[in-house]
Design a protein around this nucleic acid. Structure first.
Lengths: 145, 145
DNA sequence: CTAAAATCTCCAGCGACTGGAGGATCAAGA
DNA sequence: TCTTGATCCTCCAGTCGCTGGAGATTTTAG
């Protein structure tokens, strides 16, 4: 005698549809990133398509490296579509800069490790530049650190 | 009557020179990433230039997202420059693969975030692509997520 | 009807720090 | 010389973003 409004999802189904683990979904609810899910008569959480979208939003943002606090802000914005989006833009741009910086630094490191691996064919690690790259500030392309 | 060998650094000085916070330095020592620092008569840790290099190494590797375990391996490599090629080669190649994978993933993320930012009309959230991209899976260029 | 699967809550732990409490020690100025 | 403030010590608890186990219940498939 379960009331089935349209089609509700159990937490496991939501997990499968979004790729977010069950404990993580509960965790998101506990920190208020997801609203408290309505419960069935036997106290199980039930979700709908809106939940899927919201959770995908969160997952996607996490994959993009956004911190939970940033996501919270983004969600607030998303929940209020009449608001100016400058805030979201600033958030995203800051993140973009960080990603680009990481790529550049990783590319420098990759080149050095590559050189090491190639040099390693006959030589020994003593010709390794990796340690220098990591240890020596001067090797950095950026001045943020 | 403190014995001053050449020039030793107190933990605070090391922190300033490397940009690593004092508690973090102690933490690194506690997990064995840094060797136990020699102590002065009054039980204070003292460091030298080698410590500076090692700690900078760790810091840079961490900034690039390497886990402590990976750094531990890289340090082992660095500590043993005469090490036979084969061993070092395997280690280095594994790290190279990891770096390359990381670059690829970051580039994908960069493209997405870039498209979000560029699509943002600076107007209202209803026309803001940041929200859309994050909310809607279909906006992704890549299928990994 | 029963056994397996899914769910619930609570709680503990992870990695990698971060910071506070409470106490010792050092460096410099009056 | 004294004293004040900065720095250091250890220990321990908290942070973030999960992750998984224990033990109890409930649903579902055969």
């Amino acid at each position: 005698m379960t009331a089935m409004p349209t089609s509700t999802l159990a937490i496991g189904a939501l997990a499968k549809r979004t790729g977010v683990k069950i404990p993580t979904i509960r965790y998101y609810e506990s920190i208020g990133l997801l609203p408290e899910a309505p419960r069935t008569g036997s106290n199980r959480r039930s979700y709908d398509e809106a939940s899927v979208r919201r959770l995908r939003f969160i997952r996607h943002a996490r994959e993009l490296g956004f911190e939970v606090e940033a996501i919270r802000q983004l969600l607030t914005l998303a929940d209020d579509p009449g608001r100016p989006c400058r805030e979201a833009d600033v958030l995203a741009r800051a993140h973009l800069a960080e990603i680009e910086s990481r790529i550049t630094r990783l590319e420098a490191l990759r080149d050095e490790v590559r050189r090491m691996v190639e040099g390693c064919a006959q030589d020994q690690v003593r010709s390794c530049h990796v340690i220098e790259v990591l240890a020596d500030h001067a090797h950095c392309l950026h001045d943020r650190h």
